[in-house]
């Protein structure tokens, strides 16, 4: 365990170093980059990635994955928009939208925990399902694909666009989420259960942890995270669209994995995820300032992701050993099928 903590500290330190290098490099390329106002403002553009990635860390910690989170973002956005446009109070609409995403996450979790189908397949199916439902809601209320529903009340739009003590609200939300999920993960029994389920689900079950409900709860939280991200985006742009966040899944998973969470589960930290999402965001923003299009920056993110994993495996022989020792019982079971 101490090894694990030491390793996490190291990896997070490396991420912070990477962040500082980024700031120096981009600062020297484009002079306006290091302006504090600019940096805070730019964080706004990708804070929804971090908001979705933090609960996603839990899912990946248990050894699962949730690729439906992008669809959930669109679902929450369009649900809130459509309910509002039918005359409901915007905050009621927001609450209903969040409830919808919780239900979405719950469905993911229940299917994963109770049917024995692989999480990737389940969430792939629900990804189609939720994005489809979002489209149906949008199409049924004839919201046009590109503009969506706009004209929200000022206080909702201000939610993501105003600041407290000079810090934009979404960033405050990100920090609160990071502190909350980080504390829950590292200091509560529930957090330890999540990690233990990822390390060895059978051992967890035999030691009396309600593994199924632990798994369900992580997907539920991931759904909620996607919903929050989608609503922040809606408020930020001032318009609700069904395809909002549909491209988010690559950066979200990148943030989690770059943050040091093992895709096999059982190892990772929320703080790492949060720092990694800021690293990704800065690289996107910096490259865009250096006049690259947002699609071209995906090259850099992809390289970052692969290099991070290769580097980490090269530097830490123990992980490799652990992975190998983990693989053998799995394989013997696979052979039996």
């Amino acid at each position: 365990m101490q090894n694990l903590i030491r390793y996490l500290c190291k990896w997070e330190l490396a991420l912070v170093l990477l962040l500082i290098i980024e700031l120096i490099v981009f600062g020297s390329i484009t002079p306006g980059f290091l302006n504090v106002g600019n940096i805070l403002y730019s964080l706004n553009d990708f804070v929804y990635i971090g908001i979705a990635a933090i609960p996603m860390t839990y899912v990946i910690l248990t050894g699962g994955i949730d690729v439906s989170v992008g669809a959930v973002m669109g679902l929450s956005s369009i649900t809130a928009g459509v309910i509002w446009s039918h005359g409901a109070n915007i905050w009621i609409a927001v609450i209903i939208a969040l409830l919808a995403t919780v239900v979405g996450g719950l469905i993911n979790g229940l299917i994963v925990a109770f049917t024995g189908v692989q999480p990737l397949v389940v969430t792939l199916g629900t990804m189609f399902l939720y994005s489809g439902i979002a489209l149906v809601i949008s199409g049924g209320s004839s919201a046009s694909g590109y503009e969506g529903i706009s004209g929200f009340p000022e206080n909702f739009v201000q939610l993501a666009n105003s600041t407290i003590l000079g810090i934009p609200n979404p960033i405050i939300l990100l920090i609160i989420l990071m502190a909350f999920f980080g504390a829950v993960l590292h200091f509560t029994p529930y957090g330890r259960h999540v990690v233990l389920v990822g390390i060895n689900i059978k051992a967890a079950r035999y030691s009396g942890i309600r593994t199924r409900w632990t798994v369900v709860s992580t997907y539920l939280l991931a759904g909620l995270g996607g919903g929050l991200g989608g609503l922040i985006l809606t408020s930020y742009f001032g318009s609700a669209r069904s395809d909002l966040g549909s491209e988010a899944i690559l950066p979200v998973i990148t943030a989690v994995v770059l943050g040091g969470t093992s895709i096999f589960g059982g190892k990772g930290s929320v703080i790492g995820t949060a720092i990694a999402s800021i690293v990704i965001g800065f690289s996107q923003y910096g490259l865009q300032m250096a006049s690259m299009s947002s699609e071209q920056t995906s090259v850099v993110i992809g390289v970052l992701l692969i290099l991070a994993v290769v580097m980490r495996q090269g530097n830490w022989r123990e992980i490799k050993r652990r992975l190998v020792s983990k693989k053998i019982p799995d394989n013997s079971k696979r052979g039996a099928v």
Partner: peptide, 11 residues
């Protein structure tokens, strides 16, 4: 129970 997770790790 949990079969899916043991499998997903392999996937």
């Amino acid at each position: 129970e949990g079969d899916s997770h043991a499998k997903s790790n392999k996937v």
